[in-house]
Lab assay of single mutants.
Amino acid sequence: DLSALRVEEVQNVINAMQKILECPICLELIKEPVSTKCDHIFCKFCMLKLLNQKKGPSQCPLCKNDITKRSLQESTRFSQLVEELLKIICAFQLDTGLEYANSYNFAKKENNSPEHLKDEVSIIQSMGYRNRAKRLLQSEPENPSLQETSLSVQLSNLGTVRTLRTKQRIQPQRTSVYIELGSDSSEDTVNKATYCSVGDQELLQITPQGTRDEISLDSAKKAACEFSETDVTNTEHHQPSNNDLNTTEKRAAERHPEKYQGSSVSNLHVEPCGTNTHASSLQHENSSLLLTKDRMNVEKAEF
């Protein structure tokens, strides 16, 4: 173990290094160091905050020279020094078990990766560091076993998940096959086929009936047209017969005018059967003409 005197000496050296690497504005270890034209180094955030307070150039807090945003430059070497100082402080805390008085939040800088452990060898070769390295080497064999167990647990979990997924996939297939086998029997399929065939026959029977009705309507229309044509021909046949009657009536009127007047009046009210309204109107006109002729003949006879 380190003596108290040596611990104090190391602590004083760390404090001196820390004062050199402090920012003059925030009085902390410089984060993202930036250098000016006057070779003074500050935190990048502190300098941008200072420049944004005034429009135009501002003055350096140490030498009062003008500073602009374009004049600022990043210093990589200074950032490396800060990183190495942080590593020294971490090693000091691990070796002594004491917390550094002016320690900052170094938890963000710590890294437990194997590459980081290899890099620590180049920091300080001390008894405390050696003991700590031995402890780490002793704890390393235990870690692979834990990793193997965790991997086995994960693989077993994956296997159970896969088996569950396969079961879920197989179950719908089985149910679907069961439904297909038990849903419709052979008799049901035959009945469905016969039902479809009967429906098709009914459709075939319905369509000819409609065509037959249309044919019957067409035949009825044709018969009505033929009947009207026969009526017209009958009226045409009746007209010459009426003319013959008129000639006979004229002759009778010349011989017996008194008797014919009474008979002509009675004939006005008689309509021949089986004739249309057109034929009756023609008869009325003929009878009126005959009456006028008879009157003329009677007057001539009187004179």
Rank of each mutant, 00 (worst) to 15 (best):
L86A: 11
K87W: 04
Q73L: 08
N15Y: 15
I88M: 06
S152I: 02
P57V: 12
T207R: 08
L204F: 12
G182I: 07
Q93A: 04
N191I: 03
P57G: 12
K109N: 07
V232R: 11
D1Y: 11
T68Y: 07
D218M: 10
N157R: 05
G159A: 07
R130N: 03
K37S: 15
E28T: 02
V82D: 00
T233N: 14
D66G: 12
I20S: 06
T36Q: 01
T160N: 08
K69I: 04
E254D: 01
C63G: 00
N52T: 01
R251G: 05
S156Q: 12
I215R: 06
E148R: 12
S186N: 15
L21N: 02
I67D: 00
D231E: 15
P33A: 05
T207C: 02
I20K: 00
M47Y: 00
S126E: 10
A220M: 14
K37C: 05
G128F: 04
S35E: 10
P61A: 00
K87Q: 11
K134D: 15
T247S: 08
L158T: 04
V265S: 10
A279V: 10
Q11M: 04
K250F: 06
A4P: 09
I67S: 01
L51I: 08
C63F: 00
A133H: 14
Y260N: 02
G159E: 10
L146P: 08
A223F: 06
L29G: 02
E22W: 02
N105D: 12
N191V: 03
R70N: 10
F78N: 10
S266L: 10
I89G: 06
P208F: 00
E140R: 10
M17R: 00
M296N: 03
D66L: 12
S126P: 14
Q283K: 09
L155A: 15
I30H: 07
E83T: 01
P257L: 10
D294P: 05
N15W: 11
A4R: 05
R212K: 07
Q93G: 06
P33V: 15
V82E: 00
T76F: 15
I67A: 02
R295V: 05
P144M: 04
E148Q: 07
N267E: 04
K69N: 13
K109S: 11
V198H: 13
N105E: 08
E32W: 03
I25E: 00
I30E: 00
L217H: 04
T247K: 12
L158D: 07
H40E: 00
P141M: 07
C90L: 10
